[in-house]
Amino acid sequence: MAAAGCFCLASRQAARKITRLYDSYMQESGIRITQFTILSQLMLRGEMPIGRLAGILGMERTTLTRNLAVLEQQKWISIKAGDDPRARMISITRQGRNVVRRSFPFWSKAQAHLSRLLGADGQAALKLLDARNLG
């Protein structure tokens, strides 16, 4: 069967395994890799609307909104109305910045571990897929 070698299935399985690997390293920091990714992007890029953040992260808006609710409860982000009342602006708080700084060493260890597992060719393939903007 041709579907046995489905790249979509293989990539989704790989993504889940990679997430679990990062989460195992991040566990001691007290946050999940998805939370770290959202917070670190806000820290790097500054305040932005939910739609733009969803695009950067490659997430559906509804999934991102659920994740943001947890971060807001923790007071790691702030959500406010934008110039257009329909747009909601997301920014990282001081507490959120502290969480990123505290969690960075755990992320860094996970990153190094995955880098070793992928090797140069695997890293290049991931970057190539990102550069081709498949969707």
Rank of each mutant, 00 (worst) to 15 (best):
M1R: 14
M1G: 14
M1V: 15
A4C: 09
A4V: 13
G5E: 09
C6Q: 11
C6L: 14
C8P: 00
A10N: 12
S11P: 08
A14K: 11
A14P: 00
R16I: 13
K17D: 10
K17Q: 09
T19R: 03
T19Y: 00
T19I: 09
R20M: 09
L21E: 06
Y22K: 01
Y22R: 01
D23Y: 02
S24L: 04
S24E: 07
Y25I: 01
Y25A: 02
Y25D: 01
M26P: 01
Q27E: 08
E28K: 04
G30T: 04
R32Q: 11
T34L: 03
T34S: 06
Q35K: 06
Q35A: 05
L39S: 02
L39H: 01
S40Q: 05
S40K: 06
Q41A: 08
L42H: 02
R45P: 01
P49T: 03
L53Y: 10
A54P: 11
I56T: 15
L57A: 07
G58P: 06
M59H: 07
E60W: 08
R61Q: 12
R61E: 13
T63A: 11
T63P: 02
T63N: 10
L64M: 10
L64I: 13
A69Q: 13
L71G: 05
Q74H: 06
K75G: 02
W76Y: 06
K80N: 09
A81H: 02
D83V: 13
D83K: 09
D83A: 11
R86I: 10
M89E: 10
M89Y: 06
M89A: 01
I90P: 01
S91P: 03
S91D: 11
S91G: 12
Q95E: 15
Q95V: 08
G96Q: 04
G96C: 05
G96E: 04
G96H: 01
N98K: 11
V100N: 00
V100C: 02
R102I: 01
R102W: 02
R102E: 05
R102D: 03
S103G: 05
P105I: 05
P105F: 06
F106Q: 04
W107Y: 12
A110N: 04
Q111E: 13
L114G: 07
L117W: 03
L117G: 00
L117N: 04
L117Y: 00
L118C: 06
G119A: 05
A120G: 06
G122L: 03
Q123F: 03
Q123M: 14
A124R: 13
A125N: 10
K127G: 07
K127I: 12
K127P: 03
L129I: 15
L129H: 14
L129Q: 11
D130P: 02
D130V: 14
A131Y: 11
A131L: 15
R132G: 09
L134T: 07
L134F: 12
G135N: 09
G135A: 10
